[in-house]
């Protein structure tokens, strides 16, 4: 299940299996709907949490996103064209933006990622301090750069899927992603943190597939 949702290890017939799940869920199959939730709920949550910081609010956003998807599937308003993930994460980004606007009206800020506690979010390879610095670095990025990083890594989308969401050419997105990575690297260097160990790169690349 995790492998189906992984950005780097998606199976060739994943699209067909997803289409089957969507068709069954649209027909009211609860098992299929549960499988879709298992596939995507944490990716939606990670994207929302990275942007808004508050895990409770991120869970509310996640529920709201899936409520929208369920309503559309249940009413027969969704036509499978192989773009479920771009649609799902576009809804997520819209919810996040709505929350950001609401927070601004209330005089609050959602840009508090650097202050997030991360003890409960243990990572298999990096120390909590580096993860915290990375969150701070993300908060320093421009909105456009941060968006592409979060959609690519937190939502686990391919660049091709990013072109569907952001309506920009593939080359432009690659350049923006490259630029954002450089800014993050410079931020980590300036903070006195060397770039994460290159020797562990292969292990890190496969970290997403681990349960």
């Amino acid at each position: 299940m995790t492998r189906l949702a992984s950005r780097d290890h998606r199976e060739p017939d994943a699209g067909k299996r997803l289409a089957d799940l969507l068709a069954r869920a649209s027909a009211g199959d609860n098992d299929a709907w549960r499988s879709i939730i298992d596939l995507y709920a944490r990716r939606v949550f990670a994207l929302a949490r990275s942007r808004c910081g508050d895990p409770d609010l991120a869970e509310e956003i996640t529920q709201s996103v899936f409520a929208t998807v369920a309503g559309t599937l249940g009413s027969g308003g969704y036509t499978e064209q192989g773009k479920f993930e771009p649609w799902l994460f576009r809804i997520t980004m819209n919810r996040v933006r709505d929350e950001a606007r609401r927070a601004r009206r209330a005089g609050l800020s959602l840009e508090n990622a650097g202050a997030l506690p991360c003890a409960a979010a243990a990572s298999p390879g990096l120390s909590p301090s580096i993860l915290s610095r990375l969150r701070q670095g993300l908060a320093e990025l421009s909105d456009a750069d941060r968006e592409i990083i979060e959609l690519r890594h937190h939502a686990g989308l391919s660049f091709k899927e990013l072109t569907d969401i952001l309506n920009e050419p593939l080359g432009t997105l690659l350049a923006r992603h490259h630029r954002a990575l450089k800014k993050l690297r410079n931020f980590l260097d300036a903070a006195g943190i060397n770039s994460p160990d290159h020797d562990d790169q292969d292990q890190n690349d496969h970290a997403e597939a681990k349960p």
Partner: peptide
Amino acid sequence: AVESALDQLAHAERHA
């Protein structure tokens, strides 16, 4: 390496 670190950050966020 930074990209890989971001993947691990995302992994941490999902499991948070």
